[in-house]
Design a protein around this nucleic acid. Structure first.
Lengths: 351, 351
DNA sequence: CTGTTAGCGCATTCAA
DNA sequence: TTGAATGCGCTAACAG
């Protein structure tokens, strides 16, 4: 900057003004400075600028996801990026892998780079780092999962409601043996979806059968094993509610072997890219990651703009997308299969 | 930091040493400093540290993708993140949307934050910013697409070879009317895949038919329109090579209407998440985004470690994954369909 | 093993 | 409208 000033024959401060686009520099000097900067390959150093100026803002935010490559997370990331881009802000997206230790690492890395704010898909129950940082003045928004302590802003999908709808939808098709496959119970969304499953059964007047419930499925292998266990039972379920993306995929890969006629109804939580192209087309409870991300970014930037009102908790509705797999009918009664049910069923699962 | 030093009763430099984990501080002072830091909620400011210290490294790199939400890009991102994480480096991932103007914007944003290096999926032909930055000393690695000027390191998939393999595979199943659907010709990968298509036809002794070729399909709508045009031709193709992900998806969504019996063979470039679950299972030329990303990160960090050898160009092989759709046989001759071909065909497209 | 001094690149006083 | 001084938070080089 000194060199540019020298070459342009002005003071350092004038260069600073031009570079930052401040008003109050004569056009002539402006062009002289611009040219000198170009000539010297000068580039403004935002880090140094931040050190001294404008409220210490780094114009960068941190986004902690379970995995930047997860489709849900990636869509959310994109929405946050777009909003931030409009505000001249860059986003550091990092993966926690649902591992509290790794989350701590990445949070420290983010914080030591003095990000202006944080959007976090929290893992684990220990949010001490975030709490400390929050009281220190860094805005924090939770996404996908709400904190136990409602001190942070949050944006979540309506997991419970979505799960209820899924179960009621299956019950409405005549199913009463509805199985549940879900992720780690420690993950809040999983817990909520399970609660919704239970509630959905209750509302439909169906008695919960523990034999049809598999939780804590956190790997494709575990999901596959659970699906196999379920499908090989003598009294196997007529419908399955799969409460997570990867579990649904594992289920779909497994079910062909045990249910070649597609007699078992399936609803998956969270939409899948090619859900409409598989056989039968997959009925899903779709979340809206783009809207969740945008909403989270909105909340964060509102805080960055100085809003200090009480924490807000936004809940984004889910959407049931009936495509076929969730509309395969079951027998209306639990124990007896009337012949009348057969034709209807076959109509649905025929290609 | 000064406050921490005061509270711990040491000099500011000692605090610096402790915070940075430098050797040569007595255990006693270390704990005193650590406690004081905790008490004051002190956090190290990496930006300021960078300003003064260790070769001006910010421990952040920039990753310019076409879209952080694109599955290929997201997988690549994750690989880069993992490698960078092991080196204490954070990554700014941004989306260019294949738009040169937006790319310029995000590059400026990245560069003004003084990232240590750049991994870029380049768009457009004007790489002046990158060239300037490169000569200024910032390592730049191109991914997915190689620069015309071979001055930068690059990591690309073997697009041409993959396309050749796809076409030869289709030809080997007896197809000779093999259509091509491809993205914008200005995108290097698209051009290479097209070149591979042409070469594949040549090697198989098939005369190229311009009527079966649709390029510059850069939106789902364009892809759908092209697919419809192709499928409603009187002399429609018996096989289609779809050279891009989104185009393949559009094709699959369209083809059901015109080819309910699955008589047309399809190979798609780039693997799809549920490719194995659709009907018929989709044969693809799979890239390895994880390996591409890791390799790019390796090259970048090698440069950051001071390697100044000539530019390297790594080409990552693709893999043909036969799943069914690419193995649907065609008639061995172009004009005559012998009855003998029929049964074989039906075997394949039956569910 | 510890402390002192100087200055990274820039923006903010305040003065001209 | 422009410029000179001062310091942001930190670390390198050099003492002690």
């Amino acid at each position: 900057m000194r060199e540019v000033a020298a070459l342009a024959g002005v003071s350092i401060k004038t260069v600073s003004r031009v570079v930052r686009g401040e008003a109050g520099v004569s056009p002539e000097l402006t062009t002289r400075v611009t040219e000198a900067a170009a000539m010297l390959d000068y580039r403004h150093n935002l880090a140094a600028s931040t050190l001294r100026g404008h409220g210490q803002k780094t114009a960068a935010i941190g986004l902690v996801l379970m995995d930047v490559a997860n489709p849900f997370a990636a869509a959310l990331h994109r929405a946050v990026e777009d909003f931030a881009h409009g505000r001249g802000t860059l986003v550091f997206a990092v993966s926690s892998d649902e591992d509290p230790d790794r989350q701590r690492e990445v949070l420290e890395a983010l914080l030591s780079r003095r990000v202006d704010g944080l959007i976090v898909m929290p893992v684990g129950a220990d949010h001490s780092i975030l709490l400390r940082e929050h009281t220190r003045g860094t805005p924090v928004v939770f996404v996908d999962r709400a904190p136990e302590s409602a001190e942070f802003d949050s944006v979540t999908a309506d997991n419970r409601e979505g799960a209820i709808r899924a179960v009621e939808h299956l019950a409405a098709q005549g199913h009463s043996r509805i199985a549940y496959l879900g992720d780690l119970h420690t993950i809040q969304t999983a817990a909520h979806r399970y609660a919704g499953y239970v509630e959905g059964l209750a509302r439909s007047g169906i008695t919960l059968d523990p034999n049809l419930i598999h939780t804590d499925l956190h790997s494709p292998e575990a999901a596959t094993a659970a699906a196999e266990a379920l499908l090989t039972r003598p009294d196997r379920p007529t419908a399955v509610f799969s409460a997570q993306n990867l579990i649904t995929t594992a289920l779909l890969r497994t079910i062909g072997k045990y249910d070649p006629k597609h007699a078992i109804a399936i609803i998956g939580f969270d939409d899948l890219p090619l859900a409409d192209l598989i056989t039968p087309p997959l009925t899903t409870i779709a979340q809206d990651p783009t809207r969740i991300g945008r909403t989270a970014a909105e909340l964060l930037f509102t805080r960055l703009d100085g809003d200090t009102s009480p924490p807000r908790h936004r809940v984004i509705p889910t959407r049931l997308i009936p495509r076929g797999s969730g509309e395969i009918p079951g027998s209306t009664t639990t124990s007896v299969k009337t012949p009348a049910d057969r034709p209807a069923a076959s109509q649905h699962h025929r290609r």
